[in-house]
């Protein structure tokens, strides 16, 4: 338990200290430190190549070569992978073989602790996909598949959801639906969310906190502070432009 400035108790879910990642001598992340408390909705913004996916890969144990420490629920993730049962992950874009012979219900049941069909039904209801439960996963649109992956992440009753640019390539209707679901999960279910996005408008609308990343963390704090700070926004767009030029 921690006490914040207003004297309210809150529980720290993620605590990252001095995280650095090096790809063959090139820094992908440089001395990143921040935390995620219970109930936080943290939007991670940053241009392409800023290190957002690398950060998530480290957090999810997909990358183990890094300096610094990452703690989930107070425990260093190098010591145990048990924390993953309380973390739901929604990847950047679903790579689903459209001929993969599995129904939505079966996809949700693939998780380790999800033999309980009631939990599967509940998770599908939360993302409004319960009526399609027996459809083949490959028959769905990309937007619907992403909702299924949120449901999949919810089956094990996670404390935190990690979403890596989940709405890339999804139509506006499904994006709006997706954001509505995320908002409800955060406010009603009290699930903490860490969400990487390019969409500043959506982050401003949904996230309670913002982390601005470009290999280093040049802002981490309350969302309103970031979006009302013209200097900060100018710095962000300049950085994005530089990265964009660099990529081309």
């Amino acid at each position: 338990m921690f006490i914040n400035n207003s004297g309210v108790d809150f529980t720290m879910i993620v605590d990252i200290q001095k995280l650095s990642v090096d790809y063959s001598g090139i820094k992908a992340l440089d001395d990143i430190s921040f935390g995620i408390a219970e109930g936080d909705f943290l939007g991670i913004i940053g241009p392409n190549g800023a290190g957002k996916s690398t950060l998530f890969h480290c957090m999810l144990g997909l990358r183990t070569q890094y300096d610094g420490t990452i703690k989930f629920f107070g425990q260093d993730i190098r010591d145990s992978r048990k924390y993953l049962s309380q973390v739901g992950f929604v990847p950047q874009k679903p790579v689903v073989d459209r001929n993969f012979p599995a129904t939505i219900r079966e996809v949700l049941s693939m998780s380790q602790n999800s033999s309980d069909s009631k939990k599967v039904d509940e998770a599908l209801q939360k993302v409004w996909m319960h009526e399609l439960a027996d459809r083949r996963i490959g028959d769905l649109s990309v937007g619907q598949q992403q909702r299924v992956f949120i449901a999949k992440a919810l089956v094990n009753s996670p404390k935190i959801l990690v979403l890596d640019e989940p709405v890339t390539g999804i139509d506006q209707y499904n994006q709006d639906l997706f954001f509505q679901i995320l908002g409800e999960l955060n406010t009603k279910e009290k699930i903490s969310i860490i969400w990487a996005s390019h969409d500043l408008d959506a982050v401003e609308r949904l996230a309670s906190k913002v982390a601005c990343l470009n290999k280093t963390l040049f802002f981490h704090g309350i969302s309103e502070e970031f979006f009302s700070d013209d200097e900060m926004l100018k710095k962000y767009s300049e950085t994005s432009m530089q990265m964009h030029m660099h990529h081309h």
């Binding site: 997909l62 048990k82 973390v87 049941s109 998780s111």
Partner: peptide, 19 residues
Amino acid sequence: YKKILYSTFSEEQAKASGI
């Protein structure tokens, strides 16, 4: 089979869920 199927379906997601 569930673990093998999940690893077959999505290696990244299966790893991220601790399989």
